Computed example of a mutant assay.
Amino acid sequence: MSVVLWAGALSQGPSAVAGPADSSAPAAPNASGALPSTTASTADGSAQGSSLFAPPPPARPNVASAPQSGTGPALTVPEQELAKTMKCNGDLSKGPDPLLLIHGTLSTVDATFSWSWLPSLEMEKRPWCTVELPKSGVEDIQISAEYVTYAIREMHKRAGRRIDIVGHSQGGMIGRWSTKWWPDTRGMIDDLVGIAPTNKGTAGFYPACATLGCGAGTAQQGRDANFIHALNEDAMTFPEIDYTTINSTFDELVVPYTNGFLPSGPNVSNLVVQDYCTAEPIDHFLIIVSNAAYVLAKQALDNDGPNEAPGMAPSECLRLMPGVNLLTFPFDGLSAVGHSVQVALFGPKVPGEPALRPYAEASPPSP
């Protein structure tokens, strides 16, 4: 049932997982065994996009500095479209800080949260919102981040106070792109909790990209991707926000799992579930229903600052989080993994990661 099985199948190549022929699938390796790069050059010679499968190009894009103030670039997605993907429950102005849930790559709100965090939040009476990333999270993340930016602003406006964010995988990282380039959002967020986040990219997607191809959002999370380079160049965190990352040593998709970490600081806490529950056998997928991960996230959300003093009673380990239906859990898990596999096999593919948006690139120096 685990994504581990899917990732293992992908690593065996097309003979292990058959799919229809796709004219947009990546080209075959050349004589040296390397796959072709899709990197183009700007007038100043900086790279615009990169190969999904080759080492990073020698010339990186010149990344702009994060703006210190203002509202950032205009959103290009129509507001009506942005609003359709946001769903909220409860009075955002009352009770615990309202929580924005963001799903990850190859997934949806329903596949990730309907059987995990949403029932738990209902039990807790915590107001919440969700945002549906386009194309099951395989759209260009620079586009998906506009949906997240809109949701942050809209939640903050409705709540009249700062909000919290919990995201899984890409969902635990994408809020950092929003806060980097749309600086008004920094003061709208109290806690940003990433569960198995892809903060520094991953080598875990390369086998799938090399055999089946990737969507744009998958390609951008390669550890050598220009997107990841731009995300982490200059400021990686901001003092207005408390950051907690929750990671697993058994994560088979964020490789190495420490790529989920953020730089140490007074407002940053990087946690590993196995430091508190040694025998917790949770991978990238099952961490979303792990009670241990839930407890660590709740401690971050309910206390001031990041989760700097985590604690875990032995009874909290090796359990599913509150709200998970034990009778439907196997079906819910299979359904969620099935959706991810379907998108991985039959979803949109790109020959290389998209170019950085102009706002993320520095102007070339004057001659």
Rank of each mutant, 00 (worst) to 15 (best):
M1G: 14
V3E: 14
L5W: 11
W6P: 04
A9N: 03
Q12I: 04
V17D: 02
A18I: 14
G19R: 15
D22N: 15
D22Q: 09
D22V: 13
A27V: 00
G33Q: 01
P36K: 12
T42C: 08
S46G: 12
S50L: 01
P56N: 13
P57C: 01
N62K: 12
N62M: 13
S65Y: 07
S65Q: 15
A66W: 07
S69L: 08
S69N: 13
S69H: 09
S69W: 01
T71V: 15
T76N: 04
T76C: 02
E79D: 03
E81G: 11
L82T: 10
M86F: 03
L92N: 10
D97Q: 07
L101I: 06
I102L: 07
F113W: 08
L118C: 01
P119A: 09
S120N: 15
L121I: 06
L121P: 06
K125S: 15
G137W: 05
Q142C: 03
E146M: 03
T149R: 05
R162D: 09
I165D: 06
H168V: 09
I174K: 02
G175P: 10
S178T: 11
P183S: 11
P183T: 11
I189H: 08
D191N: 13
L192W: 11
I195A: 10
A210R: 05
L212T: 12
H229L: 08
L231Q: 00
P239V: 07
L262H: 09
S264E: 15
G265Q: 07
P266I: 14
V268S: 04
V268H: 14
L271W: 10
V273G: 11
Q274E: 15
D275I: 13
A279N: 11
A279C: 02
A279P: 02
F285P: 01
A293S: 14
L296F: 12
N303E: 15
G305T: 11
N307F: 07
A309P: 00
A313V: 09
A313G: 14
M321R: 11
L326V: 11
T328W: 09
F329D: 13
F331P: 00
F331T: 10
F331K: 03
H339M: 12
H339D: 03
L345P: 03
G347S: 02
K349M: 02
G352N: 06
G352S: 13
P367E: 02
P367V: 14
